[in-house]
């Protein structure tokens, strides 16, 4: 069978296009969604095809536009609000955490649901530094009421966005800039990648590596290196972190006895901490070593290339962390 191969950004583009075709309530907004950069190609051609009423550029007003998306969602629409970088979502934090997230619960369901998607692409490298590199899903993970997805493959980029747009509540989708140019099989028709279901990307008996987004690729590369040293790593791609597939993590880790969590974000109070803590709660007796975390250093991102190289985790660091864990 001939599999169709698409880049990550083309896969996301197709998800948006199909959602716009399928449901007149769907619209796409954000600064630059109709410009030549087209959000790394993810929105290319959409404005021309669906018109400026359904795919439109916005003022930079992140706080108000997040509220606009929420208000439209509460009033029967399904907005997708796209941001170049998660760092700018902090300007919209009030609307996301104080309004969209609790809206349904705060009114006991009496004020409707908010089916909105907010998308942003994390970056790293090339001197992007402290305010253009952050992966802030850990911050949003803290807040009940929002779903969060972190696609690692083109297939998931399309399937998770498709599900995010159909979801009855607020969803954050964090892509990673380094993923956009990677290609993989993507079916043509619309399909769902359900939230809360992780996937085993590589089977192994010696340790479990639970990863998200860009770190899935680093973990798979590390697993090859580790295999050369006789260590068989099982690599899990969590796909979404709210809800998160704690069952899969527990099941895999119960089998291997060791858990290494690889995150693109900060280490303190973040995704890796949450995964490690839950695994310890669930299967403490089956652990051969304490769960380990590989995340960013606990400081802001540097700009210069040598500092960047030391700052961002890569496959080599995953290998070292895995070997350290095997020795414990």
């Amino acid at each position: 069978m001939n599999e169709r191969i698409l880049t990550h950004s083309d896969a996301l583009n197709e998800a948006l296009r199909q959602a716009l075709e399928a449901d007149p309530a769907v619209f796409v907004m954000g600064q630059g969604v109709d410009d030549p950069f087209a959000m790394h190609g993810c929105t290319r051609g959409l404005a021309a095809r669906f018109g400026e009423k359904r795919v439109f550029d916005t003022p930079l007003s992140e706080a108000a536009l997040a509220g606009v998306a929420l208000g439209a969602a509460l009033n029967g629409m399904r907005p997708v609000y796209m941001h170049n970088r998660p760092d700018f979502l902090l300007l919209a934090m009030d609307q996301i955490a104080n309004h969209a997230a609790p809206w349904r619960v705060m009114f006991g369901g009496a004020a409707g649901r908010a089916p909105l998607v907010i998308w942003a692409a994390s970056g790293r490298g090339w001197g992007a530094a402290a305010q253009h590199s952050q992966a802030l899903h850990g911050l949003f993970l803290h807040v009940p009421g929002i779903k969060i997805a972190l696609p690692a493959t083109p297939y998931d980029a399309k399937g998770l966005m498709t599900v995010a747009i159909r979801d009855p509540g607020p969803v954050l989708v964090f892509d990673h800039r380094d993923n956009f140019s990677f290609s993989g099989p993507v079916p043509e028709e619309a399909y769902a990648v359900p939230f809360g279901k992780g996937v085993i990307r590589r089977q192994g008996r010696d340790l479990t590596i639970a990863a998200v987004s860009r770190m899935v690729r680093e973990a798979l590369s590390a697993a090859e290196t580790l295999a050369g040293r006789g260590i068989e790593a099982e690599v899990l791609d969590l796909r979404s972190i709210r809800p998160i597939d704690h069952d899969l993590i527990a099941e895999s880790t119960a089998g291997t006895g060791r858990l290494l969590v690889c995150d693109t974000g900060y280490p303190v109070g973040g995704l890796a901490a949450e995964v490690a803590a839950t695994a310890a709660e669930r299967i403490f007796g089956k652990l051969k070593a304490p769960p380990a975390r590989l995340a960013l250093p606990d400081c802001a991102a540097p700009a210069g290339p040598t500092l960047e190289a030391a700052y961002f985790p890569d496959a080599a660091r995953v290998v070292r962390a895995a070997i350290d864990l095997m020795r414990r």
Partner: peptide, 30 residues
Amino acid sequence: ADLAAGYAGGSAIVGGNIPIAAGMALAFAM
């Protein structure tokens, strides 16, 4: 909130309801 009466909700974050109303109006316009 009383959606049947068209009272769509109250926010206790000062100013937080303003853009939400604009979004509701955007939906009407669309």
